[in-house]
């Protein structure tokens, strides 16, 4: 006999694994579009710290001169990104899964302790339910980022017809910058997410495929029951 926890409902596993390639395609096609006017850079005074993006990166990814291609992919896959996102949010809201996802009052204090633990400064991990406080904040923030990408995207896509979106973003140029920053945010999220998944190990990773996570010791439950 094995003791398992039904960690991820089937629907959430679907949303997760559909979103992964779709978001990747959105970022890639967005890069093809951005290349046509790649003007953003980080500057201190007059010194350019980093230019988005260096020629080498563009060439390595075969980015140059694919604006039309980028737009045709971007405005097709945007549908999948939006529909998948809406279904995910609707599912978590209706099923009650949101209980385990939304940060609560304690989360912001606890997230700090999680960070200290992850950095090996603090020995004990705060007690958690499905997700720890840092995860709750991250997985909720990423949904708001998604909404932000849709809003800023609409503002750039149809600044006259969706002038309300452009207004909310603070103008056309501002919407473009925000859309870009959110995308950088996804890339950073992705890198940290992958790192954490590898670090946490197979049992946790395979739960996003099978849905079940094996509970190895009694401590895991009893520790949580004490919370």
């Amino acid at each position: 006999m094995k003791k398992v926890v039904k960690k991820h409902p089937l629907a959430i596993r679907w949303f997760h694994w559909i979103n992964f390639p779709v978001l990747t395609i959105m970022i890639w096609s967005g890069l093809l579009i951005y290349w046509a006017n790649s003007v953003y850079q980080i500057k201190i005074g007059n010194t350019v710290i980093y230019k988005f993006f260096p020629k080498g990166l563009y060439n390595a990814l075969n980015v140059p001169f694919h604006l039309a291609k980028g737009m045709s992919f971007h405005f097709a896959f945007a549908w999948l990104f939006i529909i998948n996102g809406i279904l995910y949010v609707a599912y978590t809201a209706i099923s009650g899964e949101w209980h385990y996802l939304l940060p609560n009052k304690k989360s912001f204090k606890e997230a700090w302790q999680v960070l200290l633990h992850d950095l090996h400064i603090r020995k004990y991990e705060p007690l958690q339910q499905k997700y720890n406080a840092a995860q709750r904040i991250a997985y909720t923030a990423i949904i708001f980022m998604g909404m932000g990408s849709v809003l800023t995207g609409l503002a750039i896509y149809k600044p006259v017809q969706f002038s309300w979106a452009m207004f909310l973003c603070g103008g056309y140029e501002a919407a473009r910058v925000e859309h870009f920053i959110l995308t950088i945010g996804y890339v950073l999220f992705f890198l940290i997410h992958i790192f954490q998944v590898i670090k946490t190990g197979w049992n946790n990773f395979q739960a996003m495929i099978s849905g079940l996570e094996v509970i190895k010791t009694e401590n895991q439950i009893s520790a949580n029951e004490r919370a």
């Binding site: 926890v5 339910q129 499905k130 079940l212």
Partner: peptide, 30 residues
């Protein structure tokens, strides 16, 4: 909310065979 919420609600016992079947099935689909 206490820890009971998630782990108590979602924890169950399964036989090794049932577990293996589930793993094979889900990885196959994946």
């Amino acid at each position: 909310m206490s820890g009971r919420d998630f782990f108590s609600k979602r924890t169950k016992e399964v036989s090794n065979t049932a577990y293996r079947k589930r793993m094979i099935f889900s990885f196959l689909i994946f």
